[in-house]
Design a protein around this nucleic acid. Sequence first.
DNA 1: GCGTGATCATGA
DNA 2: TCATGATCACGC
Length: 224
Amino acid sequence: MSPLAPTSEQELLIRARLLAGQSLGELAAQASRTVPQDLKRDKGWVGQLIEWHLGASAGSKPVPDFEHLGIELKTIPISHQGTPLESTFVCVAPLIGLHGLQWQQSHICHKLKKVLWVPVEGERDIPLAERCIGNPLLWTPSEIEEQQLRHDWEELMDLIVLGHIEQITARYGEVLQLRPKGMNGQALTDAYGPNGSRIRTRPRGFYLKKHFTQALLNAYFQTN
DNA sequence: GCGTGATCATGA
DNA sequence: TCATGATCACGC
């Protein structure tokens, strides 16, 4: 028996707040799931457990978790100091068929319009079952944050369109970075190469850098 | 292979 | 020590 999907933004927020303070062990029991020893082979386990509790529409469709509410759910691993332990994956990056693609029409822009962040203790010295959920926050990019995201996105997409994807490293971008996102280094997909050629390359994903998510968490908890 | 959920683990 | 590049699982 899985929870129903929330019918409003307010209901979603209320339900997310009820998770705060609970441990992953407690939440797993309520969902009749077993807690893995570690996340080495279950990297998405925490995210999927929280999705279940909040009634997110499961599946691997490229749409927001709560499509009817236009809200994306992101769990974020937090250190003992309350800072993000990892960058945040947003979505895969399109590498071909990019003619005329603008920020406002991009998949990443839509996904980041409204995000429900759920902090979860993530230090490896805390047994998985004992890690607790933190207070959630519903975030919409400020004008400045959206400008930062759009600027990085445009720079990265320009390089991709010009066939320079192999020159892009995770160091590009102030707040948004492009990194491999695949089963392993052998996974390949099509991309633009030099001089209008077509090449095979590793699939890439857009990730939010730690300092960006840290800043938005700080801004929220500083005023709430 | 793609897109979802992410964290792992090694080189700098 | 820590971010980059690599990797793991699942549904289809």
